[in-house]
Simulated assay, not measured.
Amino acid sequence: MKRILLGGIIIVSMVFSACRDHSKQSSEKSDKAAQVFPEPVEVKVIKLKKGIFENRRYTNGIIKSGRKAVVSFPMNGILLEMRAYNGKWVKKGEIIALLDTIEATVAIERARMQLERTHLLFLDNLIARGFDVKNLHNIPLDVLENSKIISGFKEAEINLEEALNNYQKCFVRAPISGIIAAMDNEIHGQITLGRQLCTIVDNSNLQVYFKIFQSDVLFVRPTTMVDIISLSDKNACSRAIIDYISPMIDENGMCEVSAIVTHNNCHFLTDGMHVKVSINTVHSNALILPKQAVVFKEDKPVVFVVKNGQANWTEVSIGSENDHYYLVESGLEPGDVVVIENNAWLGHNATIKVVDTVAYSY
């Protein structure tokens, strides 16, 4: 009886072991089948084509007035009156300061008296030489000039002209139209020749100066429009047109550029102001790649190109970029279909299922 029971247990154990081995083999076959025939990844794609690519580059710049004049006192004297003040707009030729004219007036009277005295000596010299002074136009010019020099009449004419000029210097006038700045002088104070009176800035003739990378020089040219943005208020924006691009690159790989301000909206720009400059460049007939199509593998840009239901790993060379697109330099061709969604974890030759073909949104 014991032998029969023991034999039954052995038979049951053998049957159970055989069933377990069969189940394990079936599971392994199922796993292998799953590996050979994986579930396709659902993706969205886009068909590449050429179009217009707009790119914005930003740099810092400084505003400078195209017309700015430093006004200095043209002579020594006493400051009698200030007819302008900081912030005042003045016209060219307008009197902005007045020096005491007493000494200048006396000098004019003295010069006139000298002129009258030497004029008599001039006529006496001609009479002594036998000429009719009532008809000076009949006397040779060289004789007249010689008599003026001998009599001192020529020098007296020059002295009177100088005295009149010095009198006019008492009235300091604006050399250009613009806004008064840096005016700081005391009335009735002693003024010396060359002392600075003020600076006049013409904010109607502004330029912006900035630098760009040497790689960007190819994308700008004279007449290219740029936007000028306030550092404190991004809504304060003006426009300028590039008028000069330096033919030289400095040691830092930068190129100097200047642009003439064409629209000073709200008049927020002024001389010496630091601003942000936005340069908008346009590339026509460019191959454009959506940014979401690019995956970086080991710091290299990679795109998955769809071929025969599979995603092929393709390295690309990309250039400029804007908010939504890259400019393709090499690696792709118009008509290529690339994955733009669910591409982060794709492997080379992964099986995919296209669920949507997206159109360009520019």
Rank of each mutant, 00 (worst) to 15 (best):
G130W: 09
S151Q: 04
A156C: 11
P140L: 03
N135V: 07
F131Q: 08
L123D: 04
L121R: 05
F153L: 02
N138S: 09
R129S: 08
V143R: 05
D124S: 08
H137T: 07
N135H: 13
L120Q: 09
A156Q: 00
L160H: 13
I158S: 07
P140S: 07
L126W: 07
V133I: 15
R129C: 00
D124E: 09
R117T: 08
L120F: 15
L121C: 04
I158E: 12
H119I: 03
F153A: 06
S147K: 06
N159I: 01
N125M: 10
K148P: 04
E155Q: 09
L123R: 06
G152N: 03
N138V: 13
K148N: 10
H119F: 10
E155W: 13
R129K: 09
L144C: 08
L160R: 12
I150Y: 14
F131S: 06
E116N: 12
K148V: 02
I158H: 05
H137F: 01
F131W: 14
L141H: 14
L120I: 03
K154G: 02
L121E: 14
N138A: 05
H137P: 10
G130I: 14
K154H: 06
K148R: 11
F153K: 03
I149R: 02
S147L: 01
E116V: 04
K134D: 15
R129M: 08
L120A: 06
K154R: 14
L141S: 05
R129G: 01
T118S: 15
E155S: 06
N159A: 08
L120R: 03
D142I: 07
L115M: 08
F131T: 07
E116Q: 15
S151K: 07
L121A: 12
A128L: 15
N138G: 07
L160S: 04
A128H: 08
F153C: 02
H119G: 03
N125V: 06
I127C: 12
E155C: 00
L160V: 00
I127G: 07
D142W: 11
I127H: 11
L121Y: 12
I149C: 01
F122Q: 02
D124N: 14
I150P: 09
V143M: 14
A128I: 11
L160G: 04
N159K: 14
I127P: 12
H119K: 06
H119P: 00
D124L: 13
N146M: 09
T118F: 00
N146T: 12
T118N: 10
R117V: 08
N146G: 04
V133P: 07
L126R: 06
I127E: 15
S151R: 07
S147I: 06
R117I: 14
H119L: 10
N135F: 10
V143W: 13
E145L: 02
V143L: 13
F131D: 14
G152D: 04
N146W: 14
I150C: 07
I158Y: 11
L126A: 08
L144S: 00
F153H: 14
E157N: 11
F131V: 04
G130L: 10
S151V: 01
I150G: 08
L141N: 12
L120E: 05
K154L: 12
K148Y: 02
K134G: 05
D132K: 11
L126Q: 10
V143D: 09
L115P: 00
N135I: 13
V133Q: 09
L144W: 04
L120W: 05
N135C: 15
G130R: 00
D124I: 01
E157G: 01
L126C: 03
R117N: 11
E155M: 11
I150E: 12
